[in-house]
Design a protein around this nucleic acid. Structure first.
Length: 302
DNA sequence: TTTATTTGACCTGT
DNA sequence: ACAGGTCAAATAAA
């Protein structure tokens, strides 16, 4: 079995996760600097907080989709429940005791099968439509999220990703219709991430959201060349230990530098870049094209 | 003009 | 046969 491809995929997912963490740090940093003015602008404060939560939420999704993490979670939720842990707390993430951020998970109900990937339903057999394997829960995890505390409670809370609704269905025994969403970037990147959103009969203010597929639009990113890090990409050398990509190397360099108190001399490169610099590189160097299409070249562009 | 949503029809698994 | 999932044309919104 060749696991190098899986390993590389995991590396890329982790790179994106780190990217989101860094971006979140940057946003939090900016918010901290602007905090004195925010008292007069509660709506801006709310907006900023939401953006930060969304960014870290993406990072959480990335971490959870890691194979090493799924080994713990997959098919073993009972164990997690016995330990009174969920994927979030096991990562050391705690939520404020009062109220939920809009994207907070109330409960991780299921995490069945492998989320390594790609929606297997799109088989190779080409028929008019892809075959629907309706194996309940396979490669899918379900969470319950509260409706937004303010604003329109008819729509599910933002989870940090952009979704496009492609269907709605009345479900037997449910008072509320089920909505079907797929990743907005499906067309450009073949991203197979999907979600189903259903309001609970017993609690209309709670949504049950079932995710399936992974955001390949996040994982197919070409490693970003960090300034100061000569454009060395992975050479494809396969080893049991993941080969650090430039982004991870940068990140590790920063962590190590921080741990050492940054007293060491660094060659021009990794440690000279703060998280905010990196996030700027990633998100702001794209000129007017600040969308995903700006970050990832599209097939159309090619 | 482009992009997103709605919704009836169609397809597939049970 | 039925229910759930998806497609795609029509429509709405930006």
């Amino acid at each position: 079995m060749d696991t190098s491809g899986t390993q590389q995929g995991a590396n890329m997912v982790m790179d994106n996760t780190l990217m989101h963490v860094l971006h979140g740090c940057k946003l939090a940093d900016e918010l901290r600097l602007c905090l004195p003015n925010m008292a007069r602008e509660p709506h801006l404060l709310l907006q900023a907080c939401k953006e930060i939560v969304n960014t870290f939420n993406k990072a959480i999704h990335g971490v959870i989709s890691q194979p090493v993490f799924n080994v713990t979670v997959t098919g073993n939720m009972d164990k997690l429940h016995q330990d009174h842990q969920d994927p979030y707390t096991s990562l050391g993430i705690s939520w404020p005791s009062s109220g939920h951020p809009s994207t907070q998970l109330l409960e991780a109900d299921t995490m069945i099968g492998s989320s390594s990937g790609v929606d297997q339903r799109l088989g190779e057999k080409s028929s008019k439509r892809p075959k629907n394997k309706r194996k309940d829960g396979e490669g899918m995890h379900t969470v319950r999220v509260p409706a937004p505390l303010s604003g329109n409670t008819e729509i599910p809370p933002d989870d940090g990703f952009t979704w496009r609704k492609y269907g709605q269905k009345d479900i037997l025994g449910s008072r509320f219709p089920r909505s079907y969403y797929r990743c907005t970037h499906k067309i450009f990147y073949g991203c197979n991430a999907k979600k189903k959103v259903q309001r609970l009969n017993e609690d209309p203010l709670t949504y049950e959201v079932s995710y399936s597929g992974n955001h390949s639009c996040m994982t197919t990113i070409t490693p970003v060349t960090i300034p100061g890090v000569p454009g060395e990409l992975d050479t494809g050398v396969s080893s049991s230990i993941s080969t650090p990509t430039p982004l991870r190397r940068w990140f590790m360099g920063n962590i190590e530098g921080t741990q050492r108190g940054n007293t060491e001399e660094h060659a021009r490169g990794d440690a000279d870049y703060q998280p905010s610099d990196l996030a700027d590189e990633l998100f702001n160097s794209l000129g007017s094209r600040s969308t995903m299409e700006g970050i990832f070249p599209t097939k159309q562009d090619k």
